[in-house]
Simulated assay, not measured.
Amino acid sequence: MPHNNATPYGFRVVGGRHGLRRLVTWQAALAGHAACEARAENDRESYLSAFTFGDELRDHLADTGSVKGYSGPCGALWLWFDLDDADDPSRTLDAARRLCAGLIDRYGIDGDDLLIFYSGAKGYHVGLPTALCGSPAPSAGFHRVARRFAEATAERLRLQIDSGVYDRVRLFRSPNSRHQRTGRYKRRLTFDELLGLRHDAIERMAAAPEPFDLPTAPALDFQALADWNQAADAVKADDDARAERRAAATGVTLNRRTLDFIRNGASEGDRHRLLYSAAANLAEFGASYELAAALLTESALDSGLPPSEVARQIKCGVEGVKQ
């Protein structure tokens, strides 16, 4: 699997989910867990970020000591599916089989192009390489497109998945790591093992970690690309509808740049200026700071501005008009 140069970083937690977030090179960390390297500490509970990040996350973590509040771009080499039936793990196994078979059939891939795992408890995890989708570029909304893609897949196959794993800074259990409650390990399964083994046999396999090789990235698949683009279009349609609702709340006609900012945010070089001017434009029509913040904050955060800077620019824009 090639390295994603635009978003090489991730974060890792050793111990419980509330532990320290440590910046890592995501692909190297994944490979270390796969190979059962000593530095991976696979005998402990550990997690990797579900998504990958660029310098924005690195700087945010250095400045704040936390990933909380990060709203910048992310990407992914793998799109993860999390299946879990707390009442009957055998049903979860059946769902994982149906998911993998559906992905193989739709995208014409080999079963072992997927990363298939037993979680060590009652769940199964499946990773689909985003290379199939043309290695989509990182963006502030990448995680939302990933969620829409996964949900559309689940709906098509009539499966239930955990949509919470598509939060931008979500943790995902590391391969070959030990589940604290059960003592079992998150084990890689071949597609044949997934099809041929009962859940109790898979549980026995998970008594110890096992090294495995990461799959080579498959070629672009046009159906996967079309599915990704359809998910991206759906997210954009949601954003446009939200922007229209926000604009309607003002009861006035705003200038085009303000509407564009509400809908799409702004690129790094323009985001401060355009946020300020959008706030000022709203204030020209009598909008309070609170209303301007309600209309602009989400788009500003999605553009990668930190919360404190968003609040400052909106305040300056509104107060500049009132002076």
Results as ranks from 00 to 15, higher is better:
residue 43 D to Q: 14
residue 44 R to L: 15
residue 45 E to G: 03
residue 45 E to P: 00
residue 46 S to F: 06
residue 47 Y to K: 04
residue 48 L to Q: 02
residue 49 S to F: 05
residue 49 S to D: 04
residue 52 T to P: 00
residue 52 T to Y: 00
residue 53 F to W: 06
residue 54 G to K: 09
residue 54 G to Y: 07
residue 54 G to Q: 09
residue 54 G to D: 11
residue 55 D to G: 14
residue 55 D to I: 12
residue 57 L to T: 08
residue 57 L to F: 06
residue 57 L to Q: 05
residue 57 L to G: 05
residue 58 R to N: 07
residue 59 D to P: 00
residue 59 D to H: 14
residue 60 H to P: 07
residue 62 A to N: 12
residue 63 D to A: 15
residue 64 T to H: 15
residue 64 T to D: 06
residue 66 S to M: 13
residue 66 S to K: 13
residue 66 S to G: 10
residue 67 V to R: 04
residue 67 V to H: 01
residue 67 V to D: 04
residue 68 K to N: 14
residue 68 K to L: 15
residue 69 G to R: 13
residue 69 G to N: 11
residue 70 Y to S: 10
residue 70 Y to D: 08
residue 70 Y to L: 14
residue 71 S to A: 15
residue 71 S to L: 00
residue 71 S to N: 08
residue 71 S to D: 03
residue 72 G to C: 06
residue 72 G to D: 02
residue 72 G to M: 07
residue 73 P to T: 11
residue 74 C to G: 02
residue 75 G to V: 13
residue 75 G to C: 09
residue 75 G to A: 15
residue 76 A to D: 01
residue 76 A to T: 06
residue 76 A to N: 03
residue 77 L to N: 09
residue 78 W to D: 04
residue 79 L to T: 07
residue 79 L to D: 02
residue 80 W to H: 12
residue 80 W to L: 13
residue 80 W to S: 06
residue 81 F to T: 05
residue 82 D to I: 09
residue 82 D to A: 10
residue 83 L to K: 06
residue 83 L to P: 01
residue 85 D to W: 03
residue 86 A to P: 00
residue 87 D to Y: 01
residue 88 D to K: 11
residue 89 P to D: 08
residue 93 L to Q: 06
residue 93 L to G: 02
residue 94 D to H: 06
residue 94 D to N: 09
residue 95 A to G: 05
residue 96 A to D: 02
residue 98 R to H: 08
residue 98 R to I: 05
residue 98 R to L: 09
residue 99 L to I: 09
residue 99 L to R: 02
residue 99 L to W: 00
residue 102 G to I: 12
residue 102 G to K: 09
residue 102 G to Q: 07
residue 103 L to T: 07
residue 104 I to D: 01
residue 104 I to Y: 00
residue 105 D to A: 15
residue 105 D to G: 14
residue 106 R to A: 15
residue 107 Y to W: 13
residue 107 Y to D: 03
residue 110 D to H: 13
residue 110 D to K: 14
residue 111 G to V: 11
residue 111 G to T: 09
residue 111 G to H: 04
residue 112 D to M: 09
residue 112 D to Y: 05
residue 113 D to H: 08
residue 117 F to R: 02
residue 117 F to L: 11
residue 118 Y to N: 06
residue 118 Y to Q: 07
residue 119 S to C: 11
residue 119 S to R: 04
residue 119 S to H: 03
residue 120 G to Q: 03
residue 120 G to L: 10
residue 121 A to F: 02
residue 123 G to I: 09
residue 123 G to Q: 03
residue 124 Y to E: 02
residue 124 Y to R: 04
residue 125 H to E: 06
residue 125 H to C: 10
residue 126 V to T: 10
residue 126 V to K: 05
residue 127 G to C: 10
residue 127 G to P: 02
residue 127 G to W: 01
residue 129 P to G: 11
residue 129 P to R: 11
residue 131 A to W: 03
residue 131 A to E: 06
residue 132 L to D: 01
residue 132 L to F: 06
residue 133 C to T: 12
residue 133 C to K: 04
residue 134 G to E: 11
residue 134 G to Y: 07
residue 136 P to E: 07
residue 138 P to E: 10
